[in-house]
Design a protein around this nucleic acid. Structure first.
Lengths: 342, 342
DNA sequence: TTTAGCACTCAAAGAAACCGAGTGCTAACA
DNA sequence: TGTTAGCACTCGGTTTCTTTGAGTGCTAAA
C-alpha cells in the first residue's frame, strides 16, 4: 500500500532517527546517497506518511519521528537484516564454549554478553523448571525435626528448601521415606509432583511409615514452591544512557520493575517459539510505552527451555539486535541439545 | 571543644537539612522552639562553625549545609536516639516470626523490610559461608560423566554445582568416593576443604579408588568456588527519589555498582562486630562520596554470620536508621540463635 | 511530477531584569 | 561583653524577551 518511494523514505527516517535520536528533517534525508529527490519532494512524501500514521511531529515545525505504526512497518517489511560481525560472534562463542561452566552460569553469561553487545537491558529467563522431571530427591537432616530437602531434575537443576517436621524422625524412618519417594516419583514432571504424591505415594507410605499423613503434608508443601523460574538480568542501568530516558522520574518506574522477578517473568516469558517484537503500547504495559521488547526462545532437543529478552527504547537498532538474538538463541539451543543428548 | 550553643545550632542545622534537603538559613533556626537567639546571633555562630569546618555554603550568600565533618560530629555526639515505633517493630517482627520461611528467605525479607521502612537502599550479606562447616556432600549422576555435586553446611545452607568427570564412573565407584568424602570431611569448615582433601582424603582414596588423582582434581575444583557469599538487595532505586540524586549521570555509577555482587560484598562486609557508619569520603570509594553507608552485623550463638547495610545520601535520617538497624540485627541474631540451638 | 523560493513556526539558547533568601558587618543595646 | 537590630550586598533561580536556525507548508515555475 505504500509506494516504493514512501518505503524508501520511511526506512531512511527510521534509520536516521535510530542513530541520532533527533527528529529527522527533509534535507538530511535528501542528502542520503540512495535518495535522489529534493527536500521539497521529500517533504510532500513525509506529509503523506504522517497522514497515513507512520510518522509524527514533536511540534508543528519540527522534523519527523517514526510513530509506533512506523516502527512496526519498518520491522515487518523494511529492515535490512544485518549480519553478526566476527567480533560479536567471537564474544558469544567465548561464553558458550566454556565447557566447565554449568548450565546456570552459561545462561547468566548469555545475558551479560547480550547486554554488553547491544547496550540495552537483557533479561534471560532460565530453563523452565516447569517441564523438567524429578531425578532424585534427598533429605538431609539438620536437627531433630529439621532437614534440607533437595530436588534434582533431569536437567541438572537443583532446588533446595528447609523443612520442619511436626515430630522427630529417626534416620531409618527418614531413609524409608526418601526411598519410597524416589522409587515412586522418579521421572515425574515437577508440576505433577503434588498430584503424584496422592496417587502414587500415599498408599505405599501408609503401609510402611508411622504418621504418614503428617509427613505427606510436609512434602506437599515442598512441592508447591516450584514455579518461580529464575530470572537473570544484565545491563539494568543501560536504559539510563538513552537520551529519551534521562529523566529520573520516567526511569524509576522501569527500574522498579526489575525488582519483581515474577512480574518480569510474566512480561518476558514467551509462549510461542521464535522471535517476537513488541513495540511501545503493544506491550500493553504502561511503563513500557516508549520501549520495545524483543524476545526469543531457546530450547534443547526441540523442548522449549526459556526465553531471552531485550528491553530498549522503541528507537532501537532493530536489525542488529534481531540478528544477535537469533544467533545467540540458535547457538545456545545447539549447545544445550548437545549437552543433554550425551 | 564546641560550646553548648554551637552544638545546639549544629544539631538544629543537621536536623533541618536532613528533612528539607535545602541549605538552612539563620532565621529558620532562630524560629525553632528550643532556640532563643536572634538570627544575627545564629549567623555569628554559623560563621564560626563554618570556620571550624562543620558547615559549608553552597554559594557565597546561601544558607549552610553540614559538611562531612559536621555529620560526623552529629553522629558521634549529637544525635538523639530515636525509638523504633510500634508499627515499625511490628513490620520487622512479622518478617522474622514466619516460622516456615527458610533462613535465606528471612534474610531476603529483612532486606525488604529495611528498605521499605527507611526508603533507602538496603543490602544484606547472607550468612557467611566461610565459617560454616560441611554437613554432607552428595553426588547425583546426571549422565555418564556428569553429576551434580551438592554441599550442605551445618547452617542448612546448600550449594550445588555441575561437575564433569574425565572418565566414566560406575555408581559403585561414585558411592565409594562419596562415602570417603563424607567420612573424612564431616565438620570441616568450608574454607579448609581444599586443604583437607589433601591431608585427609588423598591417602584413603588412593587405596580404594581407581585413578583417584583425577577425581581428587575434580573435587578440588568444586571446593574452590565457595567464597562468593550471597547478596540481597532491596530498594535499589530508592536513591532515585532523593533530590540530590536526580541527575541521571550521577545515579548511573551507583546503580551500576549493584550489578557486581563481589564488589558490593567487599564494600559492605563488615569485619568488626556491631554498628558502623561511614560518611561520604570515609567510604574511600568515589561513587559514594555523597553517600552514607551504615552497616551492622548479625550473628547466631555469638558466631558472626553476616552484615546488614544501608546506603543512602549523607543527608540521612541517622537516628531512625540506626535504631532500626540495631533493632533488626538484634532480633535477627536472637532468632537465628534460637533456631540453631534447637 | 518535481523543485526552487519564500513566508512562517517554534523550540532552544542567550541576555536582561527581577526577586528574595540569605549573608556579613556595623552600631546600638542590655 | 555578649546580643541584636538594621542595612547593604550577593547570588542563584525565575521570568521575560530576543535571537537563532532548523524545519515546515504552500505557491508557482520548470
Amino acid at each position: 500500500m505504500l509506494t516504493e518511494r514512501q518505503m524508501l523514505i520511511l526506512k531512511a527516517i527510521v534509520d536516521d532517527y535510530v542513530t541520532n535520536a533527533e527528529p529527522v528533517g527533509s534535507r538530511s534525508i535528501s542528502k542520503r546517497s540512495n535518495v535522489s529527490y529534493s527536500p521539497a519532494t521529500i517533504r510532500n512524501e513525509m506529509s503523506d506518511l504522517e497522514e497515513l500514521g507512520f510518522l509524527e511531529k514533536t511540534h508543528s515545525s519540527s522534523g519527523r519521528i517514526p510513530s509506533q505504526k512506523g516502527y512496526r512497518h519498518y520491522v515487518d517489511h523494511l529492515l535490512s537484516p544485518s549480519l553478526v560481525t566476527k567480533k560479536e560472534a567471537e564474544n558469544i562463542q567465548e561464553v558458550l564454549e566454556d565447557r566447565f561452566a554449568e548450565l546456570e552460569e552459561v545462561v547468566k553469561q548469555s545475558a551479560k554478553v547480550l547486554s554488553d553487545l547491544t547496550s540495552y537491558t537483557s533479561i534471560v529467563l532460565g530453563p523452565e523448571v516447569f517441564e523438567s522431571t524429578l531425578k532424585q530427591i534427598q533429605l538431609i537432616p539438620i536437627s531433630d525435626n529439621q532437614a534440607v530437602a533437595i530436588i534434582v531434575t533431569d536437567t541438572g537443576h537443583v532446588e533446595n528448601q528447609t523443612v520442619y517436621f511436626p515430630h522427630k524422625l529417626s534416620s531409618e524412618e527418614l531413609e524409608k521415606v526418601v526411598k519410597i519417594l524416589n522409587d515412586r516419583l522418579y521421572g515425574v514432571p515437577l508440576y505433577k509432583l503434588q498430584q503424584a504424591l496422592r496417587t502414587e505415594v500415599a498408599n505405599v507410605m501408609k503401609k510402611y511409615v508411622d504418621r504418614y499423613d503428617q509427613i505427606l503434608e510436609v512434602f506437599k508443601e515442598i512441592f508447591r514452591h516450584h514455579h518461580n523460574d529464575k530470572v537473570y538480568y544484565s545491563g539494568k542501568t543501560n536504559i539510563l544512557s538513552q537520551p529519551e530516558f534521562n529523566d529520573v522520574d520516567r526511569v524509576r518506574d522501569i527500574l522498579n520493575i526489575f525488582e519483581e522477578d515474577e512480574l518480569v517473568s510474566k512480561l518476558f516469558r514467551s509462549e510461542e517459539k521464535g522471535l517476537k517484537i513488541r513495540i511501545g503500547e503493544e506491550n500493553r504495559f504502561a511503563p513500557f510505552d516508549d520501549c520495545t521488547v524483543i524476545t526469543a526462545t531457546y530450547s534443547a532437543d526441540g523442548k522449549q527451555l526459556g526465553t531471552v529478552g531485550i528491553l530498549g527504547p522503541t528507537r532501537m537498532e532493530y536489525p542488529r539486535v534481531i540478528s544477535l538474538m537469533d544467533y545467540l538463541t540458535r547457538d545456545l539451543s545447539r549447545l544445550l541439545s548437545n549437552r543433554y543428548s550425551k
